[in-house]
């Protein structure tokens, strides 16, 4: 395996959790909800996935546990922000803090234990392709899932009635309500989808990317996923590009460290975060680009008037 091939494999592995979490958050934001709790849902998914897989010995069960946990976390957010109309920013931040704290507590007995590794599935013929074969066609099921989810989300949002309703609710919840759509129900469903995706992202971290549980192992990936959604101007295809761009920056940092490039490791490990800031500045500088797909009701609570 050449160095390029090896780098590509790790880039895919590093990008997948970003892509999964960002696609989920994209759907949430398209429906007009800003859930800043991605990091918290992701880290809870990671610990639940690891714990379940370790206890039962099945990675599949770990994935299921991670998804269920992600959804449970998101429904807590949905209850507070949609039913009780609490402030979304404050609730999302609380969800992240809560998730980081609770996962540390729950994960304490599992720290340092050897986990269950998600098996690679080699796709016949395609996996033998040079360079890209091992990176894209001999990966675990979550990598494939991330691509399928991206395509499916893009299709649903732009081509189906369901997607149209989600977008409509995010653009003008009063109009959607007047036409008889159930704004709160649509948003709760989207929030749950976002939670499931964040759970999957967490599972990938603790079952595939590394096979162990480390406290706060998400290391800000939830925040990068959030930034990616803005960076991608709420378009699924651009989320894919963005996720791989950030994954690549991340891995390059590690490789540069490994090769002894003489750059301080702190600087290299801060690269993805720096890239996030630069990307956000570039995007918000171009007002028309940023406005084009911005859900106009993003972050606003909807209280039906009687």
């Amino acid at each position: 395996m050449s160095l390029v091939e090896a780098a590509l494999v790790t880039i895919v592995a590093a990008s997948t959790p970003l892509l999964l979490a960002a696609i989920g958050e994209l759907v949430v934001e398209r429906s007009g909800v800003l859930n800043l709790g991605v990091e918290g849902m992701m880290v809870m998914g990671a610990v639940a996935g690891f714990a379940a897989a370790y206890t039962v010995g099945s990675a599949t069960l770990g994935i299921v546990a991670a998804v269920v946990t992600g959804i449970a976390m998101s429904l807590l957010f949905a209850f507070l922000t949609q039913i009780l109309a609490a402030n979304q920013v404050a609730t999302g931040l609380a969800l992240t803090l809560f998730g980081l704290g609770l996962s540390g507590l729950v994960g304490e007995p599992f720290t340092g234990l050897p986990g269950v590794k998600l098996e690679r599935i080699e796709i016949p013929l395609l996996s033998d392709l040079p360079i890209v074969g091992s990176a894209f066609f001999a990966q675990d099921v979550l990598v494939y899932a991330s691509f399928i989810l991206t395509i499916a989300t893009a299709f649903v949002l732009s081509r189906t009635k369901t997607g149209l309703v989600i977008r409509a609710v995010g653009i003008n919840h009063h109009s959607a309500h007047a036409l008889g759509y159930k704004v709160i129900a649509v948003r709760c469903a989207c929030i749950a989808f976002g939670g499931a995706c964040a759970g999957l992202a967490g599972a990938h971290l603790s079952l595939a990317y590394t096979t162990q549980w480390i406290e706060s192992m998400t290391a800000g990936r939830g925040w990068i996923a959030l930034a990616l959604v803005v960076f991608a101007t709420w378009v699924p295809g651009r989320v894919l590009v963005g996720a791989y761009l950030f994954g690549a920056v991340w891995i390059m940092g590690l490789y540069a460290q490994g090769l002894g490039a003489g750059i301080p490791p702190q600087l290299l490990s801060s690269l993805p975060y720096l890239a996030t800031i630069v990307a956000l500045v570039l995007i918000s500088g171009d007002r028309i680009l940023a406005k084009a797909n911005t859900p106009a009701c993003l972050g606003q609570a909807f209280v039906p008037d009687r």
Binding site: R159, T160, K161, L164, V165, R167, A168, I171, N172, H174, S175, A176, A178, L179, Y181, A292, N293, A296
Partner: peptide, 24 residues
Amino acid sequence: FQHFSLFDALTVVENIALVMTGRF
């Protein structure tokens, strides 16, 4: 409606599809 129940960022056809039954 007096205050239109339209969606600024959507096209005319998308706005109309929102009240139609059946496939988009």
